[in-house]
Amino acid sequence: MTDFWILLTGSLVAACCAILGVFLVLRKMALVGDAISHSVLPGIAIAFLLSGTRDSAFMLIGAAVLGLVTVFLIQLFHQSGVQSDASIGIVFTALFAVGVILISLNARQVDLDLDCVLYGEIAYTHWNTISLLGIDTIPKAVWMLGFTLLLITAVIFLFYKQFKLCAFDPALAAAVGIPVALFHYLLMGLVSMATVSSFESVGAILVVGMLIIPPATAYLLTEKLGVMIGLSVVTGIVSTFIGYYAAVVLDASIAGCMVTAALALFVLAFLFSPSQGVIARYVSRRKAALRHTAS
C-alpha cells in the first residue's frame, strides 16, 4: 500500500507540474517557476505563524499570495531597468532568505523542517492521513494534490484558447482583447498552488524539476500544444515510476531519483527524438549531403 500512495502522490505532482510547465517553457519563463517554488517559503512560514496550525488551506493562500508578489516584484524591477534574469535572482533569493530567517527565529514553535522544504520526504506521505468525506485512509497530500490538479485542469480546460494564444503570441492576444496580464498572474497563481501542495511531500526540488524537464522533453517530441501537454504528463508520470523503483534499488532519495529519471528521459528525447533529435538531424543532414553529391 505504501508503494501505491507514494506513486500516486508522485504522479499527481508530476501531472500538476507538467501541465503548467508546458506554458512556462513556451513563454520562456522556465526560471520564473524555479523562483516561485523558492519564494513561497516566507508565505508558508507567515501563514503558519498567523494561523498556528499546519492547516493546508492557510498555507495554500499564503503561498499563492507570495507567488503573485514574486511575479509582481520581478516585473517591477524589470520595468525599472534591471535585466529580467537578474531581477528573478534578486527577488527569489531575498524572499527565500526572509523565509529561512522567519523559520529559524521561530524554530521552537514552527514544526517546519528546512530540509523537508527543499527535498521533501515523500516516503512518509502515507502516514499523514486525514479524514474527509468519511474516508480516512487517503493521505492528506493526495487530497491536496488531487484538488490542485482538478483546479488546474478546470482552469486550463476553460481558458485553453486564451492560454494558448498568450503562450505563443502575447502581442496578438493583447490585440484581440485577451487580458494577457490577468492570465499571466492566473498561471503564476496556479504554479504557486502546485508548489505549495507538493512541497510537504516532495520538496521544492522535485517541483522545479517536474515543472521544467518533462515539458522540455515533450517540446522536443511534438509541435502541437495539446499533444505536448499529454506527452508532458505521461513523461512526468513515467519518470515518477522509474525514479521510485530506482530509489528502492539504490536506497537513495526518492525525489532526487525521480528528477534524475526525468533528466534521463530528457536526454533520450534530446538524442533520439524522431523530428528534433540530435541523431535524426544528423541523419537528415547526411542524407541531404549525399543527395547533393549524387546530383
Partner: peptide
C-alpha cells in the same frame, strides 16, 4: 542542438544536476 531556449536549458541542467546531487 535543440529548439529549447537558454532559460529552459538552465532549468533542466540546474534541477537535473541537483537531483543527481541529492541522490548521491
Amino acid at each position: 542542438y535543440s529548439k529549447l531556449k537558454s532559460d529552459a536549458a538552465m532549468g533542466i541542467v540546474l534541477t537535473g544536476f541537483f537531483g543527481i546531487g541529492i541522490v548521491l
